[in-house]
Simulated assay, not measured.
Amino acid sequence: MSDSISTFFDAWQIEDANDRLDQITRAVTVGILYDDPRTPNTVTGIDALSHYVGMFSANAPGWSAKVVSKDTIGNVTRANIAFSGLDPDGVEKTQIGQYFVEKEGDLISRMVGFVGTGEQ
């Protein structure tokens, strides 16, 4: 069985809004809080998060988001995510993002993402 972090990022390539919402609902708490470099304000709640993730699917068709590594200390998991797909020129590209994840039980309650892994 997949963990909630993998389940959440698997939803990033789901184009159907209802299917994406169902997938995200299985991964996060009702009061989920989400931030990344593209969110000017914290995204709050499952519906808002599903809408935000849907913008990725719409703006990057065919791209995927996959967990490539993760480790946990206390109640915080650090996960490196590979966002991969074809650029406008048809060249395969991969961008890495790093997320810090807090959970309540098995579900994600807070997630904060950064571009890259902090290395120069």
Rank of each mutant, 00 (worst) to 15 (best):
S2W: 12
I5W: 02
S6W: 10
F8E: 09
F8G: 03
A11M: 05
I14K: 13
N18Y: 08
D19Q: 14
R20D: 01
L21T: 15
Q23E: 13
T25M: 10
G31C: 10
I32Y: 10
I32F: 08
T39V: 03
H51E: 06
F56V: 08
F56M: 01
F56C: 02
A60P: 00
W63V: 00
W63F: 04
A65T: 05
K66S: 02
V68P: 06
S69H: 11
S69F: 04
S69Y: 06
T72V: 09
N75C: 01
V76Y: 04
R78K: 10
R78A: 02
N80D: 06
I81V: 08
I81R: 00
F83W: 03
G85Q: 05
L86R: 12
D87C: 02
D87M: 05
P88G: 09
P88L: 10
D89F: 06
V91W: 03
E92I: 00
K93W: 00
T94G: 09
G97V: 03
G97C: 07
Q98I: 04
Q98H: 09
Y99P: 03
F100L: 08
E104S: 13
G105R: 11
L107K: 15
I108P: 04
F114Q: 06
T117I: 11
T117C: 05
G118E: 07
E119I: 14
Q120R: 08
